[in-house]
Amino acid sequence: MSLSMIPTEAFTQVDNFSEQHIIKPDAALDKCMQNAANNGLPDISVSAIQGKFLMIQAKMMRAKRVLEIGTLAGYSSIWLSKALPADGELISLESNEKFAQLSRENIAYANPSCRVEVKHGAALETLDTLQGAFDMVFIDADKMNSAAYLRKAIDLTRPGAVIYVDNTVRNYNILLDEHTQDPYGIGIRAVYPALQQLQDQGLIEATNIQICSSKGHDGLAIAVRL
Rank of each mutant, 00 (worst) to 15 (best):
T157R: 00
R158Y: 01
P159K: 11
P159C: 04
G160D: 01
G160Y: 00
G160L: 00
G160K: 14
A161G: 04
I163M: 09
I163A: 01
I163Y: 05
I163V: 15
Y164H: 13
V165A: 03
V165N: 01
D166L: 05
T168S: 10
T168I: 08
V169D: 11
V169G: 10
N171L: 05
N171H: 13
Y172R: 14
Y172T: 14
N173H: 10
L175H: 03
L175K: 11
D177S: 05
D177K: 12
D177E: 10
E178P: 03
E178Q: 12
H179G: 08
H179C: 10
Q181D: 13
D182T: 12
D182I: 03
D182C: 12
P183Q: 02
P183W: 03
G185P: 06
G185Y: 05
G185E: 03
I186C: 11
G187F: 03
R189H: 03
A190D: 03
A190W: 01
V191C: 00
V191N: 00
Y192M: 06
P193D: 04
P193A: 00
A194G: 03
A194F: 07
A194T: 11
A194V: 09
Q196F: 01
Q196P: 00
Q197K: 12
Q197W: 05
Q197H: 11
L198Q: 05
L198P: 06
Q199F: 06
Q199P: 01
Q199D: 02
D200P: 05
Q201I: 01
Q201C: 10
G202R: 04
L203Y: 07
L203H: 07
L203I: 14
I204W: 08
E205G: 08
A206E: 02
A206L: 09
N208V: 15
N208A: 10
N208R: 10
I209D: 04
I209N: 11
Q210M: 14
Q210E: 12
I211W: 04
C212K: 13
C212R: 14
C212L: 14
S214P: 12
K215S: 13
K215H: 12
K215Y: 01
K215W: 13
G216D: 10
G216L: 13
G216W: 11
H217D: 09
H217T: 00
D218A: 14
D218C: 12
D218Y: 06
G219D: 08
G219F: 13
L220F: 13
I222E: 10
I222K: 02
I222G: 04
A223I: 06
A223N: 09
A223K: 00
V224H: 11
V224L: 14
V224W: 12
